[in-house]
Design a protein around this nucleic acid. Structure first.
Length: 264
DNA sequence: ATTGCTTCCTGAGCGC
DNA sequence: TGCGCTCAGGAAGCAA
């Protein structure tokens, strides 16, 4: 479900709600949701919540970190009211003051991993550039796309190249760059690559300012939806600004929207 | 090494 | 109202 801006919004919320709270227990309600949790484990107090790509990393004062990936439909909801239940609650992190973090996930693809502080998560180690850092620049992206025959839209979805983009933002970025999502990556000009880098940063920053997109599943930790959907120009749209019908095709099994007249 | 297809799972929305 | 179909913002695992 969530892409970088949604994950960042959740992290901002967590950093304002759970810092210094002592974790007393992590409960798993669906097998496979929580990995490596041990009974009577000391989780310590929450020190900081960080993001890497679409991963949420909760660092604590104990020798552990809690690594969360929401996948398609995962939500983290901070709840003070002990009576409130969520419908698809798969796990809960309880704090000593009675508040808790609910991990709600309809499709059950999401995961919570308990790791040692210095233990590497292989999938995180392999992630590509953070799009909002200087790591993502035209030289880097040119190098990554060199000799790659796959369509640009598929490679922008590859987390090991740029970490944090998903289907919606990739399509918005390509639309704003006027680049056909089917375009073979190694046939892009340097100018087009520069455009992609620039628009990626602009679109993500704008979306974070709007607290993320909401199509259906995304909610902030306070159960609020985002506003960026009002700014989408191509995803699930019928018509382009130019008057042309937006085309929807399948690429790598997933819906791809683009304007056949603006995007070349 | 690179690419793309299938799979995990549940629910919403649509046409008939 | 209900059935069956397609779709869903992710990414691991597999085969070619």
């Amino acid at each position: 479900m969530p892409e970088l801006p949604e994950v960042q919004t959740i992290i901002n919320g967590l950093n304002s709600k759970i810092i210094e709270k002592k974790i007393c227990r992590i409960a798993e309600y669906r097998k496979g949701t929580v990995e490596n949790s041990l009974p009577n484990m000391d989780y310590g107090k929450v020190k900081l919540v960080e993001r890497r790509g679409k991963y949420i990393i909760i660092k604590t004062t104990a020798d552990c970190k809690i690594v969360i990936h929401l996948r398609m439909t995962g939500k983290l909801i901070f709840e003070v009211d002990s009576d409130k239940q969520s419908k698809y609650c798969r796990a809960e992190i309880f704090f000593s003051d009675g508040s808790r973090l609910i991990f709600d996930d309809v499709r059950t693809f999401g995961k919570i991993q308990i790791m040692k502080k210095n233990q590497a998560v292989p999938a995180i180690e392999e992630l590509g550039a953070e799009p909002l850092s200087d790591q993502l620049n035209p030289e880097f992206l040119s190098k990554q796309l060199k000799n790659r025959k796959a369509p640009i839209r598929n490679l922008l979805l590859n987390q090991n190249i740029i970490a944090g983009l998903g289907n919606i933002y990739v399509l918005e970025i390509l639309y704003r760059c006027k680049i056909d999502p089917r375009k073979q990556a190694d046939r892009l000009s340097l100018k087009q690559i520069e455009k992609i880098v620039g628009q990626t940063k602009i679109v993500l920053k704008e979306a974070i300012e709007k607290n993320g997109t909401t199509i259906s599943d995304y909610r902030s930790v306070e159960d609020q939806s985002g506003q960026f959907q009002n700014f989408l120009r191509v995803y699930q749209k019928k018509k382009c600004k130019c008057g042309t019908e937006i085309k929807r095709i399948k690429m790598a099994g997933r819906s791809t929207y683009f304007c056949p007249s603006c995007q070349q």
